[in-house]
């Protein structure tokens, strides 16, 4: 069974994944909307930047985040100068890392969903007197619902499984920044294979259930689109 520290790590992991998913859906919506409709020449550049976490070793991302968010970094230093704690080694720091790390898993399904809707339903809504925001909530959101479900589940599941970024900027503080993937690593390091099995099983079951939801509800989905 899970030890108390493992249970705490599970709760932190779920909190992190939940907060990250909410932030990503809020950030990802305007970003994906813009990407789905723009003809701007910088679109491929933004596409590539968003897809970068798919291919980079997470430690690269974690390393730079540590530099930026740490006490000597641009943002960390700024936080320190106004009397706040630097973000490295805090839960907030983890959230920032996770948001960047899981961004493509939320933006791409949303972008696909928006592109799939096309312009026509919006034009129809406009000729039926719907204002722009009204059009988004009454037409785009309901039509993009499968995309939102996919984005939410993937963002959540991918954050559950992150390791490298968390290791670099989390600092492995029990009760604050220690997540399940790190707990497994710790157990293996100290040769507690039984505990490693228990925690791994939790992650496997959780991730499988989430992915099953996505694929069952949305049969045409592709996880990675480059």
């Amino acid at each position: 069974m899970l030890t108390d520290t493992d249970t705490t790590a599970l709760i932190i992991t779920l909190q992190l994944a939940a907060v990250t998913t909410v932030i990503l859906l809020l950030l990802g919506t305007p970003l994906a909307w813009w990407l789905a409709r723009t003809r701007s020449p910088v679109k491929p550049v933004i596409d590539a930047i968003i897809a970068l976490p798919l291919v980079l070793p997470p430690t690269v991302l974690g390393f730079y985040l540590l530099l930026v968010l740490g006490p000597n970094g641009a943002i960390g230093g700024l936080m320190e100068s106004i009397g706040a704690r630097p973000l490295a080694f805090t839960f907030t720091g983890l959230v920032i890392g996770s948001v960047i790390y899981s961004l493509p898993f939320v933006v791409q399904p949303l972008q696909d969903a928006f592109a799939g809707i096309g312009r026509r339903p919006l034009e129809v809504a406009a000729t039926l007197r719907a204002k722009p925001l009204d059009r988004f909530f009454s037409v785009v959101l309901p039509l993009a619902r499968p995309g939102y479900l996919t984005a939410a589940v993937l963002g959540f599941a991918h954050t559950l499984g992150e390791f490298g970024v968390v290791l670099m900027i989390g600092g492995n503080i029990p009760g604050a920044t220690k997540v399940l993937s790190i707990a497994i690593y710790d157990h293996v390091e100290s040769l507690q294979y039984g505990q490693a099995h228990a925690v791994s099983a939790v992650l496997i079951v959780l991730s499988f259930a989430l992915l099953l939801t996505v694929y069952a509800l949305n049969r045409r989905f592709r996880v990675i689109r480059l």
């Binding site: 129809v124 406009a126 000729t127």
Partner: peptide, 20 residues
């Protein structure tokens, strides 16, 4: 004047009903 403020009724070539 933006489209949603013009009192037109528009019938497109394809019916373009809201499927939801």
């Amino acid at each position: 004047r933006p489209a949603h403020e013009r009192p037109v009724g528009y019938v497109f070539q394809e019916a373009s009903l809201f499927e939801h």
